[in-house]
Amino acid sequence: MEFIDLKSQYQALRTQIHTRMQAVLDHGNYIMGPEVQELEGRLASYTGASDCITVASGTEALLIALMAIGIQPGDEVITTPFSFIATAEVIALLGATPVFVDIEPDTCNINATLIEEKVTPRTRAIMPVSLYGQPADMDQINAVAQRHGLSVIEDGAQSFGATYKGRKSCNLSAIGCTSFFPSKPLGCYGDGGAIFTSDRNLAEAMREIRIHGQSARYVHTRVGVGGRMDTLQCAVVLAKLERFDWELAQRRRIAARYDDLFAGRIDTVRQRPDCEGVFAQYTIRVANRADVQAELRERKIPVAVHYPAPIPAQAAYAKYGYDMHIPVAGEMTRRVISLPMGPDLDDASVERVAAAVLRVAAR
């Protein structure tokens, strides 16, 4: 059993992937080739955003977004302590300060009701993460931002395809970012990412920053980075779009099956009633995580822990202040465990995983 079965996905899309990649090999435009523009148009249409800018990774997407809104040393950006390190990393790289707000115990997303009390005169932006594939309470977050003149950047690295109140993730705020890392719900075969906005000025800035701050060849109007997504990776994502909606439906069906098997017995990460998540991970919360891991390991069932420590507890981020103001995040790092999930996971495997978890829970 695979934690994420990319091999079966490849076999299902083998012809489309080969055809798309061969087209790139034939025309030879490996950087900013026609597939880049095609993918950007397809993704923008999918989310409803006016513009999509493909970039080299999900991390690069966040960095470019922060650069586009002018984040400077000394600024503060409010975010979650319960995420992959990249969320805070890009803030720190620009010399700004990540300010951590605790999470909701049921969704594990940033607790929007706690954000406003962390706003100071130095706050410039809020960066919520759509964790495990479902957005946070974006309306409330956007309302706080509007009251204080802040920008909102959705870190949708895990949630492309998800919806919040009928609107697509990555088009829920001024800027949305996503990742095409291979294990994501829509992944390529290397690194890749995208930024979404309906603000044409921001779109222009981010397109220039992506190519070393160029407005034209050798005309550098702003400081930038080498942040392009290569044409071959765009070709892979274009091929995977062919069955993306089917894959999302399968992920949701599998999650519902897990829910049924665990109902009343295992604490799962809750889906908001106004969200339709994409289940980048299917995550449960248990008090005896080590026992669950040992049981599943013995039965050759792969699991993962996202994430084993709050970001400010990491040595590189200790200077930003790890204290007891994020008790929920601290508790979740000790309890969460993610189970096998993917569109090609069969019902028998889901039942096998659930049975193993329940066997430990019954002890």
Score class of each variant (00 low, 15 high):
Q158C: 10
I153W: 10
T123F: 09
G176H: 01
Q134E: 05
R124K: 14
D106Q: 14
P105W: 15
A145E: 15
G166T: 09
F180W: 12
G156R: 09
N111H: 14
E104I: 00
C108I: 14
Y164V: 04
L150Y: 07
N171T: 10
C108L: 15
I115N: 09
A157R: 05
L114H: 11
N111L: 09
M138L: 06
S151W: 15
D139V: 08
T107V: 09
G166H: 03
S179E: 03
T123W: 03
K184Y: 04
G161D: 02
S173T: 12
M138T: 06
I115H: 04
M127K: 06
G166P: 01
A143N: 01
S169H: 05
E117K: 14
G149N: 09
Y164R: 13
S183W: 08
Q134I: 00
S151H: 15
H148V: 02
T113D: 15
A157D: 05
A125N: 07
E154M: 11
I153L: 09
R122I: 02
R147A: 10
M138F: 01
P105Y: 12
D139C: 08
P135H: 03
D137W: 11
N111W: 10
E104F: 01
V119F: 05
P135A: 04
E154L: 10
F160V: 01
A112G: 08
E117W: 13
P185L: 04
V144M: 13
G161M: 03
P121R: 12
Q134C: 02
I175T: 03
N171I: 04
G161V: 01
L150S: 12
P182T: 15
L172P: 05
A125V: 03
F160D: 01
V144T: 15
L114I: 03
F180S: 10
I110C: 07
L131M: 11
A125I: 05
C108R: 13
P121Y: 08
L186E: 08
M138R: 02
L186S: 04
A125C: 05
S179L: 06
Y132T: 02
